[in-house]
């Protein structure tokens, strides 16, 4: 599944200072749908190079990290249960850096 992942507000520093990642996330099997919960695990394993605790807390994003799926607040689409489709754009923005 092709996805565009974007990191902002300082989170890009955790993945080699690259803000936009075009990635191919493979599904575990044909039946399963990819959810945000799965994607977070994938991101932590494959993209986050340092200080993963700045990105995640437990199996969720760290409080203070905003998530937009296709420009839409993930709080409207079920947060971790949001299912993803091919070519979706997921944005992670930290609010925790200095203002």
């Amino acid at each position: 599944m092709q996805l565009t992942l974007e990191f902002g507000g300082g989170l890009e520093l955790l993945c080699d200072s690259v803000k936009i990642h075009n990635v191919n996330v493979s599904l575990k099997n044909e039946v399963d749908k990819l959810t945000m919960k799965d994607l977070l695990v994938w991101v932590r394993t494959n993209l986050i190079k340092e200080r993963p605790e700045m990105f995640m807390k437990g199996d969720n994003v760290r409080p203070g990290v905003l998530v937009l799926v296709n420009d839409c607040d993930w709080e409207l689409s079920g947060q971790l249960d949001t299912t993803l489709e091919d070519k979706d754009v997921v944005v992670f923005i930290s609010t925790l850096h200095g203002g």
Partner: peptide, 24 residues
């Protein structure tokens, strides 16, 4: 339209016309 499929098609509670994109 396509962009907002994840929101379950809920409409903005202020204008009741466009799809919601943010929870305040």
């Amino acid at each position: 339209e396509e962009n907002h499929k994840k929101a379950g098609g809920r409409l903005c509670c202020l204008c009741n016309r466009r799809r919601a994109a943010l929870k305040r």
